[in-house]
Design a protein around this nucleic acid. Structure first.
Lengths: 353, 353
DNA sequence: CTGAAAGCGCTTACAG
DNA sequence: CTGAAAGCGCTTACAG
């Protein structure tokens, strides 16, 4: 198969090596096939003879050819970008989720575009819609709490934009893929652990109950106690807001006076750190006078002293699964995915005095 | 100007409102100008008559027209994506930098693509090169420590990819823009503060001295002390590695035995948290027996008890400036930008006993 | 100041 | 299993 000799031909040879990258036309000409055949190979079409495929693939590798995502995106009317939409203040959680997503996207040709938002601001859904439409996103990862907003998911479905929702508990959604983190189970494991140590007077500091995760953790904890015959009186449940400061305030309420619980379960590590501060100031020794369990297993947990027993969330795995779901080519429906939390025991608990 | 009546015409009218987005052709036809004129307006060319411009702009607003970044990218041979390349384990720092960059990118049509990397892995520069070439990035933000690698910057210059380098101290770089964070000044302020409180026996826990930031902070601190006649003996300088665990180890060395310093300056808050742990375990009271200053002003600083005096870095501002530099259209060279740190005084220091 | 033609690097729709 | 033509929505290079 004699390649045509033309100025364009001689020009493109060195081009591949040096400055300009090879295009689908270069590959087609060099391989002696049509560009459509190259396109079929790029897109893993089965309608290509095996030896043709292998010859062209070898050439692409040799030349270092990679299809231009801009050109593909224009023709497909869809980019090779995955959006991550989130409304979460915890830096470590966000970064872990990003790392997980990038694990799945590595060498896939897809890239991650980050898009924090404020779910309390009135125009935020429109803002995400503009983002998705303008960038022609291939898919969107919805991270708590944004993932809990059905209106957001509905908007994406209306745009025919595929999405995955990372949610603390499963529920009905016909279009998107669910990744369920089962926060309830993690809280139940914390409850069982404290019961096993012998605690009976146990208090609870929750995140704002407008967060589904706060509800799940609270109910999971309270029900696990109830299953083993331990009731939590209303006065021992304080609704805080997932922040350090709210943990300080809740800790002060629970630890003032003589009638103190022997253990406290906190809805996240930040609030637990707040309780550490209160205890330290009041001369209450952890774990001798007070056992404490957090949720998140953030870096903070091992930086506190004594180190904090906490529920680990496997955030990076969660992010990886969410992104992997968005870029898979197999169109068959996927079952709901589950990532289960589990308790990491450290030094902040012991049997009550 | 009677718009031609054609099937395409009637089809595009409702299209703009509902399903399909308007294109440059729709705008050109509706406005009665050529698409090239619309293109000129999109690109802010001065070669358009004022009333033509205003008429077309009004129409674009009315229709909600936004140019397709994929098509523009293909024609320009450059995407509308800004890459953030980093090799930094501190979640809060990364997230702050991202927020800052997004502040600058909001409503600009540019999006942020995150790209963590491992500067110690041998192939990382090639990996970033592939990222930049394949995505045809418009520009790249280089965050410490990746920003300190001249080979990385050289590679980007070779690709004619614009970049900004966020660096602890200014140095020569002909191509990229520098954002200098002056870590030295922050450390000097910490030194002055401790001197003013009356400390004379002051120790230092540094990050790994392969990091430029660690060198700058160390030298800034030691020189500021020297300026006021206080020498730091070698034995009072411990090289650690910016991690909590390394801070614990360094703290144990410095606080064992009777001959203890009255104050310690830590190269970051993580290591300071390690010293807190050592002090708490050893019954050394902060700040009564030991004053402590950190660097970063991370959330950790206010979660420790007593809260940690630390040097704030204005990371979000830094990210905003870095991204803004990359997307500005004015081609005039920009002077080096400076972001200066400053000390946030909290409760971890007092005069020596 | 304005426009018609060609092209960016791919894919879709159709034909064989 | 393979290919020639038209098109995705823009910009560049040229002409006027």
């Amino acid at each position: 198969m004699p390649a045509r000799k033309s100025p364009a031909d001689t020009a493109s040879r060195p081009a591949a090596a040096a400055g300009k990258a090879a295009t689908i036309n270069d590959i087609a000409r060099l391989a002696g096939v049509s560009k459509k055949t190259v396109s079929r190979i790029i897109n893993h079409s089965p309608l290509v003879r095996k030896d043709t495929r292998e010859k062209v693939e070898a050439l692409m590798r040799e030349v270092g050819y990679v299809p231009d995502p801009l050109a593909r995106g224009l023709a497909f009317r869809r980019s090779f970008l995955i959006g991550m939409v989130y409304d979460n203040p915890t830096a470590q959680y966000i970064v872990d989720m990003q790392y997980g997503a990038l694990d799945a996207l590595r060498d896939s040709g897809f890239e991650l575009v980050v898009h924090p938002c404020d779910t309390r601001s009135p125009g935020y859904i429109d803002s995400v819609r503009r983002f998705v439409r303008q960038q022609k996103l291939h898919g969107v990862m919805l991270v708590p709490r944004a993932s809990e907003d059905q209106n957001l998911a509905d908007m994406l479905a209306e745009l025919s934009c595929r999405y995955t929702r990372i949610v603390p508990v499963g529920f009905d959604d016909h279009d998107g893929r669910m990744i369920v983190t089962h926060d309830r189970d993690g809280a139940a494991e914390a409850a069982d652990y404290l019961l096993t140590l012998g605690h009976k007077d146990i208090a609870l500091i929750t995140g704002a109950l407008t967060y589904r995760s706060a509800i799940e953790r609270t109910e999971g904890f309270v029900q696990a106690l109830a299953m083993r015959g331990v009731e939590v009186p209303k006065s021992r449940i304080i609704e805080a807001s997932y922040t350090f400061e709210s943990g300080v305030a809740a800790g002060e309420k629970l630890l003032a006076g003589k009638d103190r619980p022997t253990a406290i379960f906190c809805g996240n590590d930040e609030m637990a750190a707040g309780v550490y501060k209160v205890a330290l100031r009041a001369g209450i020794s952890i774990p001798r006078d007070l056992s404490l369990v957090g949720f998140d297993d953030s870096p903070l947990a091992s930086r506190l002293w004594p180190s904090l027993t906490s529920v680990r969330r496997h955030t990076r795995d969660t992010g990886r699964i969410a992104a992997a779901t968005l870029i898979r080519t197999d169109p068959s429906p996927l079952p709901v995915a589950s990532v289960r939390p589990h308790l990491i025991v450290r030094d902040s608990c012991q049997p009550p005095a």
